[in-house]
Design a protein around this nucleic acid. Structure first.
Lengths: 166, 166
DNA sequence: TTGGAAAGTCAACAAGGCTGACGTAAATTC
DNA sequence: GAATTTACGTCAGCCTTGTTGACTTTCCAA
């Protein structure tokens, strides 16, 4: 039985030691997860905060500032600083809302899409390598545990982003 | 076939869309992962950096400052600031090395152990809940993918911390 | 005995979080 | 039509946690 994760009928025996290993796995893996984009970003004047904004604008083109605030979980002032530099540098475009003119709909410009592609290519390459090394069953489990680890509100955000998936 | 992760004989069909979902899963799950300790820490004057130091000193009592630097991947000055406050507040003790008096061996005081327990109890509770909700097979896969996602150097750190495990 | 490693410290700086306050335009409600 | 609420932007100031660079002290080892 591998690493004592299970007993007879799917009951889990979870020692503190096993849980601690999961915790450290998250810590070290997250470092790897962000390492490649971080390397690209530091050559420009951007950081992880810019990456996150770019990612979610790419994911949901036309999203509003409020939506982004909810997803990223930061303050308006903090996001604004990041968004400001992306708009000034011509990576993001903010169009006045059509039905509600108070809103700003956010889009990546071609230049923004270029950077998005660079960043996500790097991140996907690592993810793909990890998936291949681990195999299909592991991938399924990986996603299942991560989803269970999210706060309910974040899980909703995550799942709503997955709409349109088969 | 669940979510198209596999074809016939274990070959993975990984669309960009699937990889992106894995990326977002990491993002949202990491937020959940740190949420509980963060809530505890903010009531005191500590942050995530203090938590990391406490965690690894607890994990390897008597570890040196250099070891900690290698594991945490920050600069000496950055770690020193955190360590300084923990020592001043009586959570960590730095004993002059026995064989090499330049080294400082780090230990948690009883007060430090109290905080460590609070933090790890909270973090383990979430991890345990996620593990239970996902099931044993998923847990196995979770750990496998995370390990594959680490940088080789970090993987060694991770695995060396696991020595002594059966 | 001298070179270099380990550790600590001081100073300065930046990114990216935060709070609070204030302004404006647009939408909504009364 | 007036008052209120909403969405967004911005100014000012603070904190944590990362960085670089320079310098000192201690002390092991060649």
């Amino acid at each position: 039985m591998a690493e004592g994760t299970t007993g007879g009928e799917g009951l889990l025996f979870l020692t503190d030691e096993q849980l601690r290993k999961g915790i450290e796995a998250m810590f070290f893996a997250y470092r790897g997860f962000t390492a490649d984009p971080d390397r690209i970003l530091e050559t420009m004047d951007y950081g992880r905060a810019h990456h996150r904004a770019i990612h979610f604008i790419h994911r949901s083109p036309g999203t509003t500032v409020s939506n982004l605030l909810a997803i990223l979980g930061v303050t308006k002032q903090s996001l604004n600083r990041v968004l400001r530099s992306l708009i000034d540098d011509g990576l993001v475009e903010a169009r006045v809302g059509k039905s509600d003119k108070r809103e700003r709909n956010l889009y990546l410009t071609p230049k923004g899409q270029d950077l998005e592609r660079q960043l996500s290519d790097a991140q996907r390459a690592r993810m793909r390598a990890a998936y291949r090394a681990a195999g299909p069953a592991a991938v399924q489990g990986f996603r299942t545990v991560l989803e269970a680890m999210m706060d309910p509100e974040m899980r909703r955000q995550y799942q709503s982003l997955r709409e349109g998936e088969k």
